[in-house]
Amino acid sequence: MPPIVKVSHLDKYFGRLHVLHDVSLEVQPQEVVCLIGRSGSGKSTLLRCINFLEEPSAGTVEVDGLSVAAEWKGRQRRQLVHDLRLRTGMVFQEFNLFPHMTVIENVIEAPVTVKNMEKDKAIALGEKFLEKVGLMAKRDEYPARLSGGQKQRVAIARALGMEPKVMLFDEPTSALDPELIGEVLEVMKALAREGTTMLVVTHEMGFARDVADRVVIMYEGELIEQGPPSQIFGAPQDPRTKVFLERYRAS
């Protein structure tokens, strides 16, 4: 089967700062890939280049057969980027729920406005995803009245509502109080079990070890090592990976 995500020779500069160095990465259907690495190594930037929230400076991003090259310009590209975003769902560290909408309105907003889905159908679909993240009871609440963990679960339901081909998670539990991390990770685990294709930037090593099919180590804008979690955590090859993991265990 062809990969769902195929990032080829991606480079990204912020001004003169070279943040991504010739990064190539594939994610297979139903695969869960965890991207880990030091702060500032470029994990978020890579994730955000996949749905063009950040403009790659060079290289190609392909999602479910649709590819967009960094150098393409103009109207046609805009359409392609839009289609690319429909194929990806993103979950942010800071949730970014729409505060002026209730939980269910958050979930159906994009299906209705972007996909022109009928409202009844969108609601039925939205309720299905709220059920999945265990928040049907909060259907008509405003985000302000939810805990951080609940907010993030709604954000996951909102992204799922667009029925993307791949879910991108950017440190989904880093803004949460420790006691709320578990409920979000449980939801992500359930998604993984159901065969959702996921690319997850995380500092939760336990999650990576238990759930990931593959762990990718990023270091100063390069992917330096990847493999199954048992290999990465058990017998890392690259000395920089060893240092990173040891420092992690120490803290």
Binding site: L86, M90, N96, L97
Partner: peptide
Amino acid sequence: GKGQREAALALGM
């Protein structure tokens, strides 16, 4: 906030 714009764009708006 910027996050609101990003969430909207990421959803394909």
